[in-house]
Simulated scan of single mutants.
Amino acid sequence: MVLTLMLIGVILLGVAIGSVSVPVPIVAKIILNHLMPNTVSVTWTPTQDQIVWQFRLPRVLLAVIVGAALSVSGTALQAMVRNPLADPYLFGVSSGASVAAVAVLTLGTAAIGGLSLSFAAFGGAMLTMVVVYALAQQSGRVIPTRLVLAGVSLGYVLSAMTSYLVLRSTTPYGGAAAVLTWLAGNLGGAKWQYLGLPSLAVLGSTGLLMLQFRSLNAVLAGDETAISLGVNLHRFRIQLFVLSSLMVGTVVAMSGAIGFVGLMIPHIVRLLVGVDHRYVLPTSALLGGVYMVLVDLIGRIVIAPQELPVGIVTAMIGGPFFIWLMRQRSGGVG
């Protein structure tokens, strides 16, 4: 309940603050008027209505979706491989999306069959997921260690391909700037028509994971425990990997590469509510949404009127957190 109210609060704050500020009460009235027409008296200008409804609210909602997707994916993957340092981007999904997106930005849509940037990025992410899954199999079974190694190895190869595409590009400086902006994460292109697919993917995948919280708890406790409780480890790991990759691939296609969220938020949530995934999953989704809205807000105001890509902000926060986490684990904590 507290996190839900906090999420509503940061959404209103994220919409209100910008190059042209709109008072929070006016923001709330505009949103309410669009959701339930003629329920409040109009005390705002058409310009304020356009700023709130057409520009800022879709961006803030995309931030919520991205934060929830990365956090829930991180939670599932950390349980699947029983590694608290696991992150959705450890498995190469964002690298695959990056290659496809950079190909569009540097070579044009004709290079990948006329697909738009977002569809190309999604396709690259899903193709990478299939390859990592194939490489991770041993004797017909998915091995968690091989899954991590395959993801890391393929991620390096795909990162090299991305660098090659950027270096050989003959596009003018603006094209290179667009590539760097996408690779650093950007929520500025959010529009209402772009939010349907990511919302459906995140809500559906999170709902399916929550229905299997007992299996997640069992897997986190160890293979022997999970098997003794009747969990089909092979099939369940495939489900976790597919759902996580689907969420990450969908949001990466919209936001670009944003790291550390899937690493940080699950750890913070476990400190707050424990390790039972019945509570960890929904709390991770809510806290991830709150965190991403705040990160985007920081990126918009810290060097205003210019914007700092959200991926840079999450790296500046997540890097020290990662170091702290490693020190805690090396000291026998956690």
Rank of each mutant, 00 (worst) to 15 (best):
V2Y: 12
L3V: 04
L3P: 07
L5T: 05
L7Y: 10
I11R: 09
G14D: 05
I26N: 05
V27S: 06
I30Q: 08
I31K: 04
L32K: 11
P37K: 11
N38H: 15
W44Q: 07
P46R: 04
T47C: 11
T47S: 14
T47P: 01
D49S: 12
Q54R: 06
F55A: 03
P58I: 15
R59G: 00
L62S: 01
L62V: 03
S71W: 02
A76D: 00
A79T: 05
V81E: 09
N83W: 01
L85Y: 01
A86S: 10
V93N: 07
S94G: 13
A101G: 13
G113R: 02
A120T: 05
A121C: 04
M126T: 07
L127P: 11
M129D: 10
V131L: 08
Y133A: 06
Q137D: 03
S139M: 04
V142R: 09
I143F: 01
G151L: 11
S153I: 09
G155Y: 13
L158G: 12
M161N: 11
L165E: 14
T170S: 10
T170M: 08
P172Q: 13
P172V: 13
P172W: 08
V179C: 11
T181K: 12
L183Q: 14
L187M: 08
G189R: 13
A190D: 00
W192R: 06
Q193F: 12
Y194L: 02
A201S: 11
G204K: 06
T206F: 01
L209P: 01
M210H: 13
F213S: 15
S215F: 00
L216T: 04
V219H: 01
V219I: 15
A221W: 03
D223T: 09
S228W: 08
S228F: 00
S228Y: 15
G230H: 09
N232R: 14
N232H: 13
R235W: 13
F236M: 08
I238L: 15
S244M: 07
M247P: 02
M247A: 03
T250G: 03
V251F: 06
V252R: 08
M254D: 05
M254Y: 08
G262L: 02
M264Q: 02
I265C: 06
P266K: 01
V269Y: 07
R270Y: 02
V273G: 10
V275W: 06
H277D: 04
Y279F: 14
S284Q: 07
G288C: 12
G289L: 01
Y291C: 13
Y291L: 14
M292N: 12
A304P: 09
P305R: 15
Q306I: 02
E307K: 12
E307Q: 15
G311T: 08
V313Q: 03
I317Y: 12
I317V: 13
G318H: 12
G319R: 08
G319W: 12
M326K: 04
R329P: 04
R329H: 08
R329K: 01
G331E: 11
G334A: 14
